[in-house]
Amino acid sequence: MQTISEQEAKERIARTIARHFDQEAEAGRLFINLGVGIPTMVANYVTSPRIYVQAENGMLGVGCAAPEDRQDHDLINAGRACVTETPGCSYLDSAASFGMIRGGHVDATVIGAFEVDQDANIANWIIPNGKQLGVGGAMDLVSGAREVVIAMQHLSKTGKSKLVRKCSLPITGIGEADMVVTEYAVFVFEHNQLILRETAPEITLEELRSITEADFIVP
């Protein structure tokens, strides 16, 4: 198994998800919400003009990151990064913005995760180490968005599989994950099963099984 650098892993995950959205947008307009970290990078790689980015702090039609000389600290995304407007963008209050999400109007959300288990449970809001105290919009997004795409590196910093049999950390939502994209593979959840869709060229199926704790089906 060839190792993949962290930077390359992140870019590959973002590119893979962007390609998935470009394909989905061939059928029509697509509204997506992007979490902090790798998910935000997805916006750099989508090419379809029919993709619109929603930010849960109250904006539809989020543009690219603001260049240094054009930063407006009252124009931010949910990761508090300064962003830009796109033509036709709009602003909402927080209740309307989450109403848009909870109401099922946002097609997909991309989020990071500490763990995802083979029953599609997601753990991404807290590591109970006494240092964290916050949930933000994570629970609203996983239960509200139509499709939940998990963008995460395959292994934790200590080399453990992040795709597990059962989440050990407090969960964000029950059975909400639809797709998991790592630098080594793409998985989808269908009919309560985790199914392998793609494998990276650097890895064999046997090697993938050896670094993945969760059971998955190879079609």
Partner: peptide, 15 residues
């Protein structure tokens, strides 16, 4: 004391 509420629920509860 700290009461954590999911952000969308928080906004809606205030509304």
């Amino acid at each position: 004391s700290v009461k954590l509420v999911p952000q969308g629920t928080f906004a809606e509860a205030i509304r």
